[in-house]
Design a protein around this nucleic acid. Structure first.
Length: 281
DNA sequence: CATGGGTCCTGAGTGC
DNA sequence: TGCACTCAGGACCCAT
């Protein structure tokens, strides 16, 4: 489940691996991956283009292939790998970009949830990208701005943080981790969180994301970066997938509940409902 | 408009 | 051993 740290790690790897290379052919083996335009037009638009840069916005990879932009979302299990043309295809390889140097950029996605769009400058971005909230590290996202964004929402804080319109890039793992670090129960209504705790929460989000990027992301299920390597941050997770195991801070068993259809992990002591701080005893 | 539930998909895991 | 079933979840769609 690539979230911001995983997508950023992939972006950095792919930047070294394919920026400056020119696409000589595109093969789409699973049409459903391509959202816009049609598959033939997608292929036609990108052949002959050079990958000038790869950016990230939220969990989207944005390939600058002037005069087109290729926008790729990995969803649950999308992976990019660079391989020599004559290497056998891994299973579930759905899109192949042939490169001028004899290599291929290959997109693999067991769950088939990922999407790609090839857009001209004047074409509308996918709605998910247009409506994306601020980047977690953007300086315009001050504690006060963050507080205002949360204060208008009555849903549980976990659901609001997963909403990419509120803040971009967070997924199930890092939301649970950030809420643990800030001592907030995931069911707490977003509007009930005061300014001080919002500032704490924003700090926790930035802290966990930056440490995860430094560790190359978390490999909880199937995530690998552009070099096929696993991340290391799963070793530092405090609550995610640790249900039944003792909290590293207080020793109580981590609980798992279902919230909005998502597995939600928290420490019932450090994240007590009603806002007790994690260091209170 | 905000919210919550269903949907897509396949492989791993579980229980009988 | 085999089979049916459940689970994993990001973004989108839709009903309320």
């Amino acid at each position: 489940m690539p979230e911001l740290p995983e997508v950023e790690t992939i972006r950095r790897g792919l930047t070294s691996l394919v920026v400056g290379k020119t696409v000589t052919y595109v093969t789409v083996r699973l049409p459903r991956i391509i959202r816009f335009p049609s598959v033939p037009e997608f292929e036609e638009r990108l052949v002959g283009r050079t990958i000038h840069a790869i950016h990230r916005r939220g969990k989207y990879l944005v390939f600058d292939m002037e005069p087109f932009t290729m926008i790729s979302h990995l969803r649950m299990e999308g992976q990019y790998r660079v391989a020599d043309r004559d290497e056998p295809l891994a299973s579930h390889t759905h899109v192949i970009f042939g490169m001028s140097d004899g290599t291929e950029l290959r997109y693999r996605d067991v769950r088939q949830f990922g999407t790609m769009d090839a857009l001209a400058d004047d074409e509308e971005r996918p709605s998910g990208l247009v409506n994306l909230g601020p980047e977690p590290f953007d300086p315009v996202l001050t504690p006060n701005v963050f507080y205002t964004r949360l204060h208008s929402r009555s849903a549980p804080i976990k659901s609001v943080l997963l909403d990419q319109v509120c803040i971009a890039g967070l997924g199930n793992i890092y939301v649970d981790e950030a809420l643990f670090l800030s001592g907030i129960h995931p069911l707490t209504k977003a509007s009930r969180i005061g300014q001080g705790r919002c500032e704490l929460l924003l700090g926790a989000i930035r802290n966990v994301l930056s440490r995860a990027i430094e560790a190359g992301g978390s490999s909880v299920r199937t995530y690998v970066n552009g070099y096929g390597r696993h991340g290391g941050f799963q070793m530092q997770l405090n609550v995610y997938a640790r249900q039944g195991q003792p909290c590293f801070v207080c020793g109580q068993a981590i609980e798992k509940i279902k919230l909005g259809g998502r597995g939600t992990h928290f420490c019932p002591h450090c994240q007590a409902r009603g806002g007790r701080r994690r260091n209170d005893n």
